[in-house]
């Protein structure tokens, strides 16, 4: 998957990860690795632009949740843990919105996957880029 990185200044420094293509089990770890690299470079607020992601499976949800854990200094899931990953996601979706990873412009069908997994309770989702940047 093609992933572009951009640094912008809002009220705080925001790193934008712009994803292009399909997101599934074949490539979701690339997205986590990219997020890890920007975290290690000092990024703490991340906007993930899904406007050009035509397809996202549950592996994409795992990737985004893992990235949210990374950005708040926690270790992401052991990806072999099956339902434990799902239950951790469920616990976090019940805990409300987190502050450091936000989503921009998911396509309607991709947004539906957020709803079906409860992740719309965990990620703020924006349709306007500047509004998203200013929200951090």
């Amino acid at each position: 998957m093609e992933i572009n990185i951009e640094q912008v200044e809002g009220k705080v420094a925001v790193t934008i990860l712009e994803l292009h293509g399909n997101l599934d089990a074949s490539n979701f770890e690339e997205v986590i690795d990219k997020a890890r690299s920007v975290y290690e470079s000092g990024a703490r607020d991340l906007l993930i632009d899904l406007g050009d992601v035509d397809f996202m499976s549950s592996s994409g949800i795992v990737a985004l949740h893992s990235i949210a854990l990374l950005m708040r200094g926690e270790q992401p899931h052991d990806l072999e843990s099956g339902w434990e990953v799902f239950h951790a996601i469920g616990r976090d979706s019940d805990s409300g919105l987190q502050e450091h990873v936000k989503i921009l412009n998911p396509q309607p069908k991709v947004a539906l996957t957020f709803e079906k997994t409860g992740m719309d309770n965990f990620f703020e989702i924006y349709t306007d880029r500047q509004t998203a940047i200013d929200s951090f």
Binding site: S58, G82, W83, E84, V85, F86, H87, I89, T113, K116
Partner: peptide
């Protein structure tokens, strides 16, 4: 945790 079955979100989404 010890009572939870192994697996992923896949079957859950398929049912949806």
């Amino acid at each position: 945790l010890e009572d939870r079955p192994m697996g992923g979100m896949g079957i859950h989404l398929i049912r949806q």
